[in-house]
């Protein structure tokens, strides 16, 4: 019971919120790059590549993020590497986000109408040209709303990094709570802060979805 919530506590929480955003950006960029590779691998002409990427997605999507975070955290230690909680959390989130974004984007690529693929083939474009010039530009339009929607999931999921000792918004809240012991008030502040970060993205995603067309909305992860 160390007194009342003061400006220093709020500054500390603010710093945590910045780290939440930082970790989310790392997860989005890392997961985006790996996820793009996964999406392409899932529709590869090579069967072995398709199977390997499908197995990866199934394994990650069948495991809770919390367990993946622990595996990342202790896995680096098991091979004798000492890494910071940020690196461990960033790597785990990248693997996790990649599996989900990969699946979302695969769906978007495959939902580009079949005649577009055939027309590109009929114009004698190579596979790379067909992808880069015909399919992906259209797939990106379809993929934007669910990707923005998934960014909300990323921000929320970074809260689990608190468990492996990374001081983001949730962890900084726990630390403040340890000195004040006013859990309800502090976690309410934390919840409102997360909401303030996520809700604009949710609204933006919904608006994009309406623009792209209502029929596409079922591409978003359930």
């Amino acid at each position: 019971m160390g007194g009342h919530l003061n400006i220093n506590h709020l500054m500390f929480l603010g710093q945590g919120a910045l780290w939440t955003i930082g970790l989310s950006v790392i997860a989005l960029i890392g997961g985006g790059i790996v996820g793009f590779v996964i999406a392409l691998a899932r529709i590869s002409p090579l069967k072995s590549v398709r199977i390997a990427s499908a197995v990866y997605v199934q394994l990650i999507q069948g495991t809770p993020l919390l367990v993946i975070l622990f595996l990342g955290y202790f896995g680096f230690a098991a091979i004798g590497l000492k890494v910071s909680p940020l690196a461990a959390a960033g790597a785990s989130l990248t693997l996790y986000v990649a599996a989900y974004l990969g699946e979302i984007w695969r769906g978007c690529i495959e939902s580009v109408p079949k005649p577009q693929w055939e027309a590109a083939e009929g114009l004698a474009l190579s596979r790379t040209q067909r992808m880069m010039k015909v399919i992906l530009p259209q797939a990106i339009r379809i993929a934007t709303p669910p990707t923005v929607g998934f960014m909300v999931q990323i921000i929320k999921n970074t809260s689990l990094a608190s468990v492996v000792g990374f001081v983001e918004l949730m962890r900084s809240g726990q630390i403040v709570n340890n000195s004040l012991f006013e859990p309800f008030a502090i976690y309410a502040i934390i919840a409102v802060t997360y909401f303030a970060m996520c809700y604009p993205l949710s609204l933006f995603s919904q608006r994009l979805e309406k623009r792209v067309g209502r029929g596409r909305s079922n591409l978003a992860p359930a």
């Binding site: 909300v152 929320k156 999921n157 809260s159 689990l160 608190s162 949730m170 859990p183 309800f184 976690y187 309410a188 934390i190 919840a191 997360y194 909401f195 996520c198 809700y199 949710s202």
Partner: peptide
């Protein structure tokens, strides 16, 4: 719906627990 979908489960659990 919006309050729950835009906050992390971990925070919700603590709020219910301490609430």
């Amino acid at each position: 719906v919006e309050a729950i979908r835009n906050t992390p489960l971990l925070v919700q659990i603590f709020l219910v627990y301490f609430g």
